[in-house]
Write a protein that binds this DNA or RNA. Structure first.
Length: 427
RNA sequence: GUGGAUGUAGCUCAGUUGGUUAGAGCACUAGAUUGUGGAUCUAGGGGUCGGGGGUUCGAGUCCCCUCAUCCACCCCA
């Protein structure tokens, strides 16, 4: 009976683990560089927690189960609800603003596809209790900061930024009732992914008035924030939303990443809970799924039973990122840092094996990484083993130990070797 | 849930109009070489040809079913 890995999961053999660590370590380093501190929660939560934000239907997309106490639980498909729960629990004790990051392992019961798996890692950063759009700009900046640190340039990636608040205000202004907005968002979100005619067709199904449909199409094609006043007469709410978005861009310019950023009315995000700036970072060619996405969600904490505290954040999965980095030649199996060994201890004579063990243990005791062959076979074999483990130095225990209590220490890189008194290692 | 493609060794793949005991390269193990690593050469281990059924004297090859994987759709927190 041969059992294989579960659909949509990956095995991380040492080479793949090195790649994963490369990505995850980069995320953590970028987070810390940008002033975020790490948190984590349990990998399963009450099923109900995911229904608050995403509705009843979400259940079929989750791995859920009942525990022996009859609790309905689910493996986490995202960490934002956990974050909301944790922050709410200690809201009065936490120093503000809260800038937290996490790299949770998540599971979703979806059909696997390119860049989309059933188990994956996702870098999350969130800033809580900062009303100023500076927090939104910081989230975008931090995402770009990481991508830039990998060697991706403005020719490789683009941050597409828009505003839910602006979109809602404009739609209301052209006569869309507020209650219709939530059904419209997923359609608008699709616009960049489908042909223009299909987009119009979908809109016409929802909206009877063809003038309104035409206006929406025009709006969605707007290339710059400055063009919006030409299309609609701005009311106070629209003006405020527009100013706010302009401020996001102003901050990003001050931080020197404006050439990565672009206004894009087509960035809507399917979910209802976004309240302000929304953004996605895509590969410049637009061939892959979004590398990351996020935005402001000022109502989430109160939806989870907490006080009304503002929040903004982003999530970046490892799957699309890895595909992009490999395509760009910024990640190969050879380019990833490999695990190395400080000392490999080779033993030439079975009689001396006890000494070899002693030296190895002493090296470990001193804080070095050290390893040895379990069999005393040909030196050639042992050198090969040392090489395979990326040993920096190889200690050879042979006749010199018997004759003058000395060991051969070979530098594996230069090939040079010297005789050193055994006591140097054994003390 | 829908559609398409693909399943032969750990990996990448060959395998003729159906014909005897299923092959190569890489990887792995050992040896050439009992005191010196990445190379070379030699040898070895490793396969119920995804699984089941059918056609046939005979199936890796043809037919049916099934399972799995990948890709696209749906969805995408």
């Amino acid at each position: 009976m041969k059992i294989q890995a579960v659909k949509g999961t990956r095995d991380f053999y040492p080479p793949q683990m090195a790649v994963r660590n490369f990505i995850v370590d980069g995320w953590k380093t970028a987070s810390i560089r940008n002033g975020f501190v790490e948190y984590d929660g349990p990998i399963f939560e009450h099923l109900q927690m995911y229904q608050i934000k995403s509705g009843e239907e979400i259940v079929e997309q989750l791995f859920n189960f009942e525990d022996r106490g009859g609790r309905h639980l689910a493996i986490r498909p995202e960490i934002t609800p956990t974050l909301a729960r944790m922050v709410n629990q200690q809201i009065n004790a936490l120093p503000r603003p809260i800038k937290w990051f996490s790299v949770p392992r998540l599971c979703r019961a979806e059909r696997p596809q390119k860049g989309r798996l059933r188990e994956f890692f996702q870098w999350n950063i969130d800033i809580i209790d900062v009303e100023d759009v500076l927090a939104d700009a910081e989230v975008v900046y931090c995402s770009l900061d990481y991508l830039r640190s990998l060697g991706l340039t403005r020719n490789d990636v683009v941050a597409k930024i828009s505003s839910r608040r602006l979109l809602a205000a404009v739609l209301k202004n052209i006569g869309i009732p507020e209650a219709r907005l939530d059904t419209l968002y997923p359609i608008l979100d699709k616009k960049p992914k489908i042909p223009a005619e299909a987009f119009v067709e979908m809109l016409e199904k929802e909206i009877d008035d063809s003038d309104t449909v035409g206006m929406i199409v025009k709006l969605m094609d707007v290339q710059s924030v400055d063009d919006i006043p030409d299309l609609v007469e701005l009311n106070d709410e629209e003006q405020a939303a527009l100013d706010e978005l302009a401020q996001v861009f102003a901050y990003l310019k001050q931080m020197g990443v404006e050439e990565y950023c672009r206004f894009d009315m087509g960035i809507v995000r399917g979910l209802a809970y976004y309240t302000g700036m929304v953004f996605e970072i895509h590969d410049a060619a637009g061939e892959l799924r979004a590398i990351c996405g996020g935005g402001r969600y000022d109502n989430l904490l109160s939806d989870f039973g907490g006080p009304k505290v503002t929040a903004t954040g982003m999530g970046m999965g490892d799957a699309v990122l890895e595909i992009l980095l490999r395509e760009k030649g910024l990640l190969t199996d050879e380019s990833v840092p490999v695990q190395t060994l400080d000392y490999f201890v080779a033993c030439l004579d079975a009689d001396l094996f006890g000494k070899a063990l002693k030296v190895t243990a002493a090296l470990r005791q001193q804080g070095h990484s050290a390893n040895l062959n379990y069999k005393t076979n040909a030196l050639k074999k042992q050198m090969k083993a040392a090489d395979a483990m990326n040993a920096a130095k190889c200690i050879i225990i042979g006749g010199e130990l018997k004759e003058s209590n000395q060991l051969v220490v070979k530098d594996m890189k230069t090939g040079e070797q010297e005789l050193i008194d055994a006591m140097t290692f054994l003390k």
